[in-house]
């Protein structure tokens, strides 16, 4: 077991294992720190800056992002000082500048006392540039169908050459981890579409469930499961059955379905 370190968070003395982030340590103590780009299943990237905290003691007095900064012996953490609140409000205003209608962002903003933004741009694409979609696709699914392009204000997520992706397997993990719903997945009839505010990223024909006949998953996705979850164990997915039918049959779920079936795709 990792050795424990002692620190204080909002005047409370806490213990946390070495290597843990401040955010995790605070959460364990029931202390709320707003976050956007952080996702438990992904490596932190620190893009949104919402999770800032004020630290002193073991580290020079400064503002750090708690989703990356690790705990340290003797660290003094403050999550809600005037300085933090002020900076956090500014960050929220900046984020709202581009995504003024994002429900999730508005909820966070009102929690932090932000009513309007001084930085409205006239655009409203809901994407907060958190990079969760890019990270999940690259680091967890191992496909890397999404990428960042351009810089600064023009920065956005897209596919290679902004065309329909050849590499996307249609798992929908991006839509699932997106904090604001800027990436969407939609099944209609026997077609699946993954799209953002300005671009259709990928389209798929859905394979039919062998039991109920309902179109439920793209072939590429099923092939991927076969390749990664089954073949490595010397098995092969032969019964193409949708999650609902699997549940009905009260058999143990062979594979957790990220979309249309509930669980996260990280089991793949």
């Amino acid at each position: 077991m990792a050795s424990m370190v002692n620190l204080t968070i909002n005047d409370k003395e806490v213990q946390a294992p070495e290597g843990m982030t401040i955010l995790e340590a605070a959460k364990r103590e029931g202390i709320f720190i707003p976050t956007l780009c952080h996702h438990e299943a992904l490596e932190p990237e620190g893009t949104c800056r919402l999770c800032i905290v004020e630290i002193s003691g073991a580290i020079r007095h400064s503002i750090r992002i708690s989703c990356i900064q690790q705990v340290k012996e003797g660290l003094i953490v403050e999550t809600d000082t005037e300085r933090i609140k002020k900076n956090r409000r500014l960050i929220l205003e900046l984020l709202l500048g581009r995504s003024p209608y994002s429900k999730e962002l508005l909820d966070l903003a009102s929690k932090c006392g932000v009513m309007t933004s001084r930085f409205l741009t006239g655009e409203s694409d809901d994407c907060v540039r958190c990079g969760r979609c890019v990270r999940v696709c690259r680091d967890k699914i191992g496909v890397q169908a999404l990428c960042w392009v351009n810089r600064g204000y023009e920065r956005k997520i897209t596919t290679d050459f902004e065309r329909l992706s050849e590499y996307c397997i249609g798992c929908g993990a991006c839509a699932q981890v997106c904090p604001t719903g800027a990436i969407k997945i939609e099944d209609r009839g026997n077609e699946r579409k993954i799209y953002t505010w300005g671009q259709v990223l990928a389209r798929f024909k859905l394979e039919k469930c062998k039991e109920c006949g309902r179109p439920y998953a793209p072939k590429k996705y099923l092939d991927r499961i076969n390749e990664r979850a089954y073949k490595t164990k010397g098995l092969e997915l032969v019964n193409y059955v949708c999650p609902e039918c699997v549940k009905k049959a009260e058999r143990p779920t062979p594979v957790k379905m990220p979309f249309g079936g509930g669980d996260m795709p990280f089991a793949i």
Binding site: Q144, A145, L146, C147, W148, V149, N150, R151, D160, Y167
Partner: peptide, 25 residues
């Protein structure tokens, strides 16, 4: 050129999205 970049990606095993990102940057 797009075709050449796609070929480069296949040849080097560097995902085309990564190349595209860099080229755009």
């Amino acid at each position: 050129p797009e075709e050449e970049l796609r070929y480069l990606s296949k040849k080097t095993d560097i995902p085309i999205t990564q190349i595209y990102s860099i080229v755009n940057f």
